Amino acid sequence: MVLSCILIGLYVGFSSAAKPHRAPVAVVTNQEPAQQVGVLAGPALQAHPVGDRESGLALLRNGRVSAVISTTPIGLRLDVATAAGPTTAVSIEEEVSAAAAKLHRPLSTHDTVPLSPTDRRGLAMFFTGLSLSLASSSLAHSLNRAHSRPPWRQRVCVTGVFGALSGLAGALVTGPLLGALPGPVLSVATTLALLSVTGALTTQALVQWLGPPGHAATTVLFVAVGMPTSGGIVGVHLLPPPAQFVSGLLPPGAAVRAVRSYCYFHGVQVTVPLLTLAGWIAAAAVLLWMRDGQYRQSE
């Protein structure tokens, strides 16, 4: 019941209270109306000065900003990337539109980096990550309940093979088959495999050390907190600052960032997310190895 309340509170709470918190926006500095919009928007937006619109669009296409504000002969122009999250694009447009109204200037909005036509709401990565997390938990549960306790090496090998197969299957289904995640198949598959292995090894490690509460702990980390803060439903920049910080540390958030970058932003800024996933895998493997050593000594 407690876990259900946590799930409801986080999923519904983040969705209903979503608003921009220092969302990165490129602002053309030599255009005074664009600068005024950035000032009027206040803390909702974090202005990144650029010399011209093309420089701002380069940042937008690399995923470094969420929008570009510039001027036109008749008013203001807002370039957004729904690929970075439809909720983020809509929220930024609302903030900029309100500021433009105060300046009595019309605003035109253009989706410069759109989502795949088969994933117009941008939910493909969320449901893919959730599915892999649940499958990983099921694998970990099976290994932990095995009659003969699998040794460390066997656990790691089985989990690695499972992760590779599930990651490849997920990339093929969401990519070539459905067209929802249009990134390079091998890059997306590698990221999904890392997420799957992370979930399975972490679950095994926590259950080995904590017993049954380990399952609840991993559910909280990967599903209750990890998924709603991942940016898969509510954009990361619409989350409260503490949730934004947590998002980058947990595997679901890291996986969403990497896959989104591979699919829409040329694979820029994937190093940190991939290292985050690798760090979780290494930590879980070490914890399992230590626990396996304790069991061997006690036999």
Rank of each mutant, 00 (worst) to 15 (best):
G231W: 01
R105N: 05
T87H: 15
H215E: 05
E299A: 14
H237K: 05
L239Q: 14
R61E: 07
Q244R: 05
E32H: 10
T203G: 05
P20N: 13
L143C: 03
V158I: 15
V12W: 13
T112P: 07
V225W: 06
W209S: 12
P86Q: 15
A189I: 00
Y295R: 14
G199A: 02
K19W: 04
G75V: 03
N30C: 00
H110S: 15
P117I: 01
C157M: 15
F14V: 10
W280L: 02
A254T: 03
G163Y: 04
H21A: 08
S4I: 14
G253E: 02
L123P: 01
V156Q: 04
P213M: 09
L288A: 06
A84C: 01
P24Y: 15
T118Y: 03
T118D: 10
T72R: 11
R291S: 13
V161G: 14
A258C: 12
A169V: 07
A224V: 12
I74D: 14
L172A: 04
A217G: 02
Q297G: 15
P43S: 08
P151L: 10
V37C: 12
G85F: 01
L177P: 04
A67L: 05
W289Y: 12
P228T: 13
V223E: 03
H215I: 07
R61I: 01
L277F: 06
A217Y: 12
V25R: 13
G279V: 04
G42F: 05
L40S: 13
R291Q: 14
G211N: 03
M1D: 11
G226I: 09
A254Q: 09
Q31A: 04
S131N: 03
A67C: 08
L103C: 14
S133N: 07
A17G: 06
S196W: 04
I233M: 09
P176W: 09
V236W: 01
C157W: 14
T202Q: 02
P182I: 00
S15H: 08
K19E: 14
A99E: 11
A83W: 02
H21E: 11
T88A: 11
G199W: 03
L178T: 13
R291M: 07
A98R: 15
P86W: 07
Q204H: 12
H266T: 13
L107A: 10
P241K: 00
L206Y: 02
S16H: 04
T88G: 08
Q208R: 06
D79M: 10
T202S: 10
V225L: 12
L165R: 00
G56P: 00
T191D: 07
L178R: 11
V173N: 03
S16T: 14
C5R: 12
V28K: 01
L181E: 07
A41C: 11
P212W: 05
F14M: 14
L76H: 02
T276V: 15
T198W: 01
Q31N: 06
A100G: 04
T190H: 01
M125Q: 10
D292A: 13
M125C: 12
L123G: 03
V270I: 08
V188N: 10
F14Q: 04
A205P: 06
P213V: 10
A254L: 03
L192G: 02
E94K: 15
I281N: 09
G129I: 00
F162C: 00
A44Y: 09
P228C: 13
S196R: 05
P184I: 11
D52A: 06
R155C: 14
T128V: 15
L178M: 13
A41L: 05
I92L: 09
V234W: 08
K102D: 13
V223H: 02
A98Q: 06
H266G: 08
P24W: 13
